[in-house]
Design a protein around this nucleic acid. Structure first.
Length: 193
DNA sequence: CTCGTAACGGTTGAT
DNA sequence: CTATCAACCGTTACG
């Protein structure tokens, strides 16, 4: 079972961590907050029981990107489904919504967008049609009854992270891992906390 | 003592 | 559907 290890291990400082997984956002956020209060990294490390190496990394990342979020874990780089190919597929699908994946593949070859060595497989094309043209992708799917609390739009980084934490607690899994950030995390400005 | 960095053992997820 | 494998994770230890 995964659950056995999932609870975590204890580091030299007495802090709990899950090997291979990012620290919780709440802790990452706290690290940045304390730093902005003027607490030194070595003291943050001891206070939160997080290794100084990790504190150093999170702070450095925050200073250069403005985000406390961990980097994108897992997945593969697109090998054949480059942005150019994807947008061409979008066009074909828009013109003929009933088009089959194998027809798309033939068109990519016939139109010279791809050659036979880099043309996407039928299953790749199907996946593109499903993922890139299927879903709204950002505004969280099931929220008919708008929750009483305002959670969008946000203007400050802090609000954004609080919003994220709220999502996670509400059952939206921590699927922000490789999630193509909602256009938020990459604003290196607004350091007004 | 503080802190940047990399080896290490680990997990993840698009292809 | 499963497998691959390069991306990232935090801790540890070194300098």
């Amino acid at each position: 079972m995964v659950g056995a290890q999932q609870y975590g291990e204890v580091n030299q400082l007495g802090g709990v961590f899950v090997n291979g997984r990012p620290l919780p956002n709440a802790v990452r956020l706290r690290i940045v907050e304390l730093a902005q209060l003027g607490i030194r990294p070595c003291d943050i490390s001891r206070q939160l029981r997080v290794s100084h190496g990790c504190v150093s990394k999170i702070l450095a990342r925050y200073h250069e990107t403005g985000s406390i979020l961990p980097g994108a874990i897992g997945g593969s780089k697109p090998r054949v489904t480059t942005p150019k190919v994807v947008s061409y597929i979008k066009q074909l699908k828009a013109k003929d919504p009933g088009i089959f994946a194998w027809e798309i593949r033939d068109r990519l070859l016939a139109d010279g967008v791809c050659d036979k060595y880099n043309v996407p497989s039928v299953s790749s094309i199907s996946r593109i049609l499903r993922n890139k043209l299927g879903g709204p992708l950002y505004p969280v799917p099931p929220l008919y009854p708008v929750p009483p609390q305002r959670c969008w739009p946000l203007h400050q980084p802090y609000d954004y992270y609080v919003y994220l934490q709220g999502r996670q607690q509400a059952g939206v899994p921590h699927g922000l891992t490789h999630g193509h950030g909602p256009a938020v995390p990459h604003h290196a400005h607004t350091h007004a906390l």
